[in-house]
């Protein structure tokens, strides 16, 4: 066996401008692909930095280790180590987020609060938010984001409802169908309020589309869910209501002659069942972010849960991504009734 030997040297003071990052197969593909634009976005002080490829966001966390890792380069004199590392960056795939804090909200009457603070354009918001460009445009329209006079704004729920209602009315009236819809076409035909701009129509169209680009194909499940949540919030926020009564109210909200399937399962994560046959609106954002307290709150509102209906309320507190049934066992009891899993408090 041919043995080789190389002198090994080390810099007296290491270069601290080097870091190593763990490369997942997806990241390796991105690094190798010349069409990918890869950036590291520095965080808010309390957040981790985020590495963004064209379509994915990765949270960067520094993992320290007690070993000393020397990185050397080969020269004619031997190997020379120029940096000594005792940590490496771990890239974890996450859902990027848009920094919507401070953006004005446009209300149903077209008013929006003008603040002295400089409002960014949508392009600038995309660059500064810890999210990849591909994800940004999907999330931006889901968040009801729009650009007015070069400023990024958020449309209020009531304004979105008014515009959506008008769009659906025109689709039914002109028998346009749900496919190949363009905002310019709708802008010219919708009986709109004076202040509604083509950008607002585009935002609503893309929010409820399947394909996130024009021409759009509307997703009817998203539309019926939107109506359902609004009706539930309006009539069952402070008191419970019969399920049948609610379904009638939901169905009657759609524009005349607009036929769409409704199912209470479309609203999972938005209601509780305080007693048999009744439902009540529940705002998930008002619940505690602590898992144990979250379970207590849920059982206070409903003593017995079907796991399927409980799941949407647990996803964000299952921080360690445990299998859901195992996660539930840590805080509650579960039993099987036929095909269903019933969860009760301990």
């Amino acid at each position: 066996m041919f043995t080789m030997s190389k002198n090994m040297y080390s810099w007296v003071t290491f270069d601290e401008s080097f870091k190593v990052i763990e490369i997942t197969p997806e990241l390796l593909r991105a690094f190798n692909d010349q069409s990918e634009s890869i950036t590291i976005k520095s965080p808010e002080p309390e957040d981790y930095p985020v590495l963004c490829t064209n379509n994915n966001s990765y949270q960067l966390r520094r993992n320290n280790h007690s070993n000393c890792m020397l990185v050397c380069h080969s020269t004619t004199q031997g190997l020379i180590s120029f940096c000594g590392l005792n940590s490496q960056l771990e890239a974890k795939l996450v859902q990027g987020k848009i920094l919507t804090q401070g953006l004005p909200i446009v209300h149903e009457n077209g008013d929006w609060q003008v603040t002295s603070k400089k409002i960014p354009s949508v392009g600038s918001l995309a660059r500064r938010s810890p999210i990849s460009e591909g994800e940004f445009w999907h999330s931006w329209h889901d968040l009801k984001g729009c650009e007015i006079e070069g400023q990024a704004v958020i449309l209020s729920d009531s304004l979105v409802s008014v515009i959506l209602h008008n769009i659906l009315g025109v689709i039914v009236r002109d028998r346009m169908g749900m496919k190949s819809l363009a905002s310019i076409e709708l802008y010219n035909t919708v009986d709109r309020l004076q202040f509604v701009t083509i950008e607002m129509i585009e935002t609503v169209l893309l929010k409820f589309s399947q394909n996130y680009e024009e021409p759009c194909t509307l997703n009817e499940r998203k539309i019926s869910q939107w109506y359902g949540i609004n009706v539930l919030r309006n009539i069952a926020r402070y008191k419970s209501i019969n399920v049948e009564e609610f379904l009638i109210a939901w169905k009657s909200e759609f524009p005349a002659f607009y036929e769409v399937e409704i199912d209470i399962e479309q609203l999972l994560g938005y209601f509780v069942r305080p007693s048999a046959g009744k439902i009540r609106y529940l705002d998930k954002s008002k619940l505690s972010s602590d898992a144990a307290t979250r379970f207590q709150e849920l059982f206070r509102l409903q003593s017995e849960w079907n796991l399927k209906e409980m799941t949407p309320y647990l996803k964000d507190v299952n921080n360690r991504n445990l299998k859901l049934e195992n996660f539930v066992m840590k805080f509650a009891k579960r039993r099987k009734v036929g095909e269903q899993i019933i969860v009760t408090s301990r």
């Binding site: 066996m1 041919f2 043995t3 080789m4 030997s5 190389k6 002198n7 090994m8 040297y9 080390s10 810099w11 007296v12 003071t13 270069d15 190997l79 020379i80 180590s81 120029f82």
Partner: peptide
């Protein structure tokens, strides 16, 4: 230029995963 100091010698063989420092 940075100063580098000799710390030793690294030995390795073709076709083997054993190394000696």
């Amino acid at each position: 230029d940075r100063m580098a100091i000799k710390i030793g010698e690294l030995q390795f063989s073709e076709g083997s995963d054993q190394v000696t420092l």
